[in-house]
Simulated assay, not measured.
Amino acid sequence: MNVPRRTVTDQAAVAAIEQGARMLRLPTIRDRFSEIAAAAEREQQSYLGFLSELMIAECEDRDRRRAQRRIHDAGFPRLKRLDEFTFEANPAINPAVIGTLATCAWVKAGEPLCLIGDSGTGKSHLLIGLGTLAAEAGYRVRYTLASKLVNELVEAADDAQLSKLITRYGRVDLLLIDELGYLQLDRRGAELLFQVLTEREERSAVAIASNEPFSAWTKTFTDPRLCAAIVDRLTFAGQIIETGTSSYRLAHARKRRTASTT
């Protein structure tokens, strides 16, 4: 028995695709199916070829939106990317080392990273740039200032919510702590910070940026034993990058002004 073939007008087909894409929550297919169908017709693609182009477009756009959400959820104060970093403005930083870190293997392994150097030497740029790459690679990232993190911990402890807060920070794959060393922490704040660093879930990475060398961290953590324990936690099997003393910020600004006048 022959089943009669259903004929559908182009107008009805467009309406059906738009309605189906809405019901199935496929916004990219809804927005681009006409464009992709026209390209498939020009290139004389098979039906399977056309369908694969639709699926690839939807998946790629969905991955892009997920990456954007992870970057937003990370709480970066501004967007900084590694490909915007001018290594000529700070010769102390080895591009090959940063290139290795850009693979995010250290994040996957849960290893620590320390960026040590004077103010304006590019630490925050590198910290945010590496964190952005990790978010785009699918890792859950959280950025915070050291002072803000300690204030959160103290408030949570006062409200009997400390374990909940530590658990929340423990869920992220990469915790970025910026501006460690700018303020002296009292014993309670230092102990709470140490608790976060030591009680994070297994194989969770942490990266810090500090304007003080490890030898001067006793100004931030006044208890010598606690200071040594924090340094051990951050340096064990981790990468230490010294960004130096020369201002990357000023050198980068001069380079941009020179480039704009040539």
Rank of each mutant, 00 (worst) to 15 (best):
K108F: 02
R142I: 03
E136T: 08
F76H: 12
R66P: 00
I98C: 07
R81D: 03
T103Q: 14
R81P: 01
A134E: 02
T100H: 11
A134W: 07
E136V: 11
A105P: 12
G99C: 06
V141C: 02
G117F: 00
F50I: 06
G138R: 14
A37H: 09
G75M: 00
E53F: 05
A102Q: 10
R30Y: 07
H72V: 04
I29D: 04
D61G: 09
W106C: 13
I116G: 04
L126R: 15
E43F: 10
R78F: 03
H125N: 05
D73G: 03
S119D: 01
T121A: 01
H125A: 02
A37L: 10
K123Y: 01
S52K: 09
Q68R: 15
Y143H: 06
R65Y: 11
E53Q: 12
A109C: 05
Q45E: 08
G117N: 03
E136D: 02
T86S: 11
K148E: 14
L79K: 15
Y143K: 06
V107Y: 03
R70N: 03
N94R: 15
G129P: 04
E58A: 10
I36S: 08
W106Q: 12
R65K: 15
P77R: 06
S119F: 03
D83E: 14
P77E: 01
T86R: 11
P112F: 02
E53V: 05
A39R: 09
A57M: 09
A137R: 15
R70D: 00
S46M: 06
N94I: 14
Y47V: 10
E111T: 07
R78E: 02
L145Q: 15
G122A: 00
E41T: 11
P77L: 01
F76W: 10
E84P: 03
R66L: 13
P91H: 07
L133T: 04
A37W: 11
N90W: 04
L54I: 04
I98E: 07
E60K: 09
I116Y: 08
D61R: 14
F76E: 01
E136C: 08
S34V: 13
C59N: 15
R69I: 05
T144Y: 07
R66M: 11
R142M: 04
N90P: 10
A146Q: 06
I116E: 08
I71W: 09
L133W: 06
L130G: 02
L130T: 02
Y139S: 10
T86K: 09
D73P: 07
R140P: 14
L115P: 07
I36E: 08
I128Q: 04
R42L: 12
L51E: 13
Q68S: 13
V97Y: 02
L101V: 02
R140L: 10
A39S: 10
E84M: 05
A146C: 12
E43T: 14
R69D: 00
D61K: 13
D83H: 13
L54A: 03
Y139T: 09
G99S: 08
G117D: 02
S34G: 08
I93V: 15
